[in-house]
Amino acid sequence: MNNFQYSRAADVADAIRLLTADPGAKLIAGGTNLIDLMKENVERPSRLIDISRLPLRNVEETDDGGLRIGALVPNSDLAYHPLIEQRYPLLASAVLAGASAQLRNMASVGGNLMQRTRCGYFYDTATPCNKRSPGSGCSAIHGLNRNHAILGTSASCIATNPSDMSVALAALGALVHMAGPSGARTTALTDFHRLPGDTPHIDTNLGAGEMITAVELPPHGFSHNYSYLKVRDRLSYAFALVSVAAALELDGNTISEARVALGGVAHKPWRSLEAESALRGQPATADQFSRAADLLLQGASTSSHNGFKIELARRTIVRTLTQAASATPQSQAHKKIA
């Protein structure tokens, strides 16, 4: 761990001022990802700007009937918030599929969106990694890549984004609100995270001096036909090999609206508008679901150890859509996959 300065931001404007003044500074919220990375010398911030006490802990209804979630709402508060449980159970479920109860108590919404990849080489400063030190090479491409991406990869990086929450947010069409030196702005969550391209060291489109202030959910919560299914190497407390957030609007057995987002397969939550529109107007059947899976996985490419992910993703997509269609969502408390 390096030596660093510590400041506690008085308000959002203060945080932005501190961030802008010191390009090596980093915000710290729950610290569950940043401190780990500092202990490994992967992150070496010159200054920590503590935002954990800023008043960004509310979940409020918006005028159009959606919800605005403050960037510092703890993951557990989010998952158990009555409005989230009732109107956006897909989001509650995805959050509960992540980490452990203790970590969720500390982790914030903003920090969750900003958490970095779990690629082992990224964590090990003795190995080359383009994301950690640009231009040094990607150790994973010809190395251990069982848990790496199959979609949207580049020749520079095949890392995945580890967040569960973001997958549900992508499916729900959430917006990310940011504040920065030149004012506030908003972007779709699906445009917030980036693909690695040849700049894998840049995870998101958050600009210099900017911070996340809130995440906004549009009114439609898909609270009837939804499911979040996370497939991993043990039944709990592991990052996804593949996860799927599925949300359907059904008219009888006909799909009138469909959202499917994938986790564990790409550098960002993965959606395919083509797959979703192919589902619209179709009956909710396994055949349709597997057609959608094919469209979602179009262009997937595997590395030496993650070849299984394509088939696993295909089957997980079909299962999750089936759970959603039958209104029997995956429980995150049962020791069993439904």
């Binding site: 779990r118 082992g120 080489y121 964590y123 090990d124 003795a126 190995t127 150790s139 190395g143 251990l144 190497d233 043990r234 039944l235 709990s236 407390y237 592991a238 020791k335």
Partner: peptide, 24 residues
């Protein structure tokens, strides 16, 4: 898990080195 190109263990922590948890 070791990367034999570096002779380094790549899951040297208990987030990535899995042991059973309660759910298992």
């Amino acid at each position: 898990v070791m990367d034999h190109r570096f002779g380094r263990i790549m899951n040297a922590n208990i987030a990535e080195y899995h042991i059973p948890v309660n759910a298992d």
